[in-house]
């Protein structure tokens, strides 16, 4: 299942909620979009949480949103970058998806 988060982890707990529920689920994937791409950056207090999640689930970030926010040189290694076409592929590859609004 693909989970999509679009909220900054510094502003609210949506990412925490998503990881609480699916952070340990084998086969789950997380796509960070819009303001959630800040969770994909190095050196923040969120980094450890994301890296822990990455040991079980696949984590992706939407590159156009990363770039728009000037975060392109700060992304955590191992987070896969996708463009909108890659976003479409992720939705197609997984049996269903949930946007954590």
């Amino acid at each position: 299942m693909l989970h999509i988060v679009n909220k900054s982890p510094f502003e609210n707990q949506t990412l925490d909620s998503c990881l609480r529920v699916v952070g340990n689920v084998q086969g789950a994937a997380l796509l960070l979009t819009e303001d959630a791409v800040f969770a994909a950056t190095k050196g923040s207090i969120i980094e450890g949480k994301i890296k822990t999640a990455m040991s079980t689930i696949k984590v992706y970030a939407l590159w156009p949103d990363v770039e728009a926010r000037g975060m392109q040189d700060r992304v955590i290694e191992g987070i896969k970058m996708v463009d909108y076409g890659g976003f479409v592929d992720l939705v197609a590859e997984h049996s269903n998806c949930q946007s954590w609004l």
């Binding site: 299942m1 529920v21 699916v22 340990n24 689920v25 086969g27 789950a28 049996s95 269903n96 949930q98």
Partner: peptide, 8 residues
């Protein structure tokens, strides 16, 4: 965990 399973 059960909620996650149900969602999937």
């Amino acid at each position: 965990a059960d909620i996650a399973k149900m969602m999937a």
